[in-house]
Structure formats: C-alpha cells, structure tokens
Computed example of a mutant assay.
Amino acid sequence: MRLLLVRHGETVWNAERRLQGDRDIPLSATGRAQASALAPVVAAHAPACVVTSPLARTRETAELLGFPGERHDARWQEADLGDWTGLRTAVLRERGGAYAAWRAGRFTPPGGEPFAALTERVAAGVADLRADPGGGVVLVVTHGGPIRAVLRHLLGLEPARIVPVGPASLTVLDLGVDGARLHGYNIRAGAEAVQPVGRS
C-alpha cells in the first residue's frame, strides 16, 4: 500500500504563529492557494481511497485537492494542546525549554494530549487502512502532529530528528510486509514529485 499524507494548507492561526491543536481554525487565503497548487502533485498518484481529519481545514484542503466527499476519521485529528491552544510560539519560546521539548515529543502542554497517545490512535488508523483488502494508494489529509506520529510509529523517527511538517505538503510512504519505506517528505507544489506507483 502507498500511503499519501497531506498536511492541510496554512490557516489564519498558522499565519499568526499561534498554536491551534484541535481547535477548528479555517484555512487562510494563502492556505487555499497552497492546497490548490498541490492538487496535481497528489492527483498524479491517483489515490483510490481518501480519509481526512474531521476538522474544517483538512476537509477544505481535500476538496481543493479535488477529493470532495471524503471519509472522516477522528483518529487523524490534531492533538489537543490544552492550555497552549491559541498561544503564540514566540511567547512559548520565552518561557524556557518546554516548547522545544514539546516539538521533540517529550513534553505535554498542561491539559493536552501526550505524543504517545497521539501516536497510539494514529497507529490504529494506519492499521485499519492496511487491513482494507483494496490496498492500493490511500490519501490521508491530516495535520502535522499525526504525520510526525506516523513517522515515529512506522519508521522509528523521533520528532526531534525531523524538520517541521510544512503546510500543504505531501509525505509518501510505501507499506509492505517487510515494513515501511519513506519515499518523500515535505513535498510542495512545484517540487519534483515522487514517482507514482507503477511508473519509472
């Protein structure tokens, strides 16, 4: 199975450098343009199944990618960031090392969801997709946190070892009986895309 993971386009809060977690913040005009620009990159892989987080920013991104009417799965929703929801990253950086530790998956904001719990629910979502006898190419439109969790779960990559997941970016993994292989990360519109399945 080829797993395509797309992070939603930029939101209003992304542009303001505010943490949103599972708050339902809409795409900005830039985010809508980013998602539209990524559409041909994703379409080249011809996904047979499309799943999104239930939040509006992922559902709108999927529509702009050309896949309306997708299936929603709350396991692909972004983590709850508790007391940090709505705070600007500059403010959090001024408070010491907690922000860097959170980015590395080693700290949970007060009242928030631990990275281990996020990884567990995303892993269950991946397992269900792999159990589908249809297999093939699956597109999941989700958030930065779940994508980092997938990389940890399938490849053992800790969040501290990867650069942030960019808005409207594509990550491509092939899942086989011998494990998972990463084919592309943070692929943006205009960049050289990973070759779709069956093409040289």
Rank of each mutant, 00 (worst) to 15 (best):
Q34C: 10
P40T: 10
V140C: 05
V197N: 03
G135L: 11
V138K: 11
L175K: 02
V42L: 05
V137K: 02
H143T: 04
Q34W: 02
R59E: 12
G105R: 05
E10W: 04
Y99H: 07
R32L: 11
I25C: 07
G136W: 09
G198P: 01
V50Q: 01
A79M: 15
P54N: 01
G105H: 09
V140E: 06
E78F: 10
T11V: 07
A127Q: 12
Q34I: 06
G179F: 08
V42S: 02
H183Q: 13
G144M: 03
G156H: 02
A48W: 07
P26D: 10
V6K: 03
P146T: 12
G190A: 00
A74V: 03
L64C: 04
L19K: 08
N14F: 00
A124P: 08
A160L: 03
V150E: 05
M1C: 04
L38M: 09
Q20I: 10
P196S: 09
W84S: 04
P114I: 00
W76Y: 05
V138I: 07
L170D: 07
V50G: 00
G105L: 12
R121S: 09
P26V: 13
N14W: 05
H8S: 08
A74E: 14
G97C: 06
G21R: 00
R95L: 14
L155F: 00
L55N: 01
V126T: 05
E16N: 03
V197A: 14
V197E: 12
D132V: 05
E60M: 10
L19Q: 07
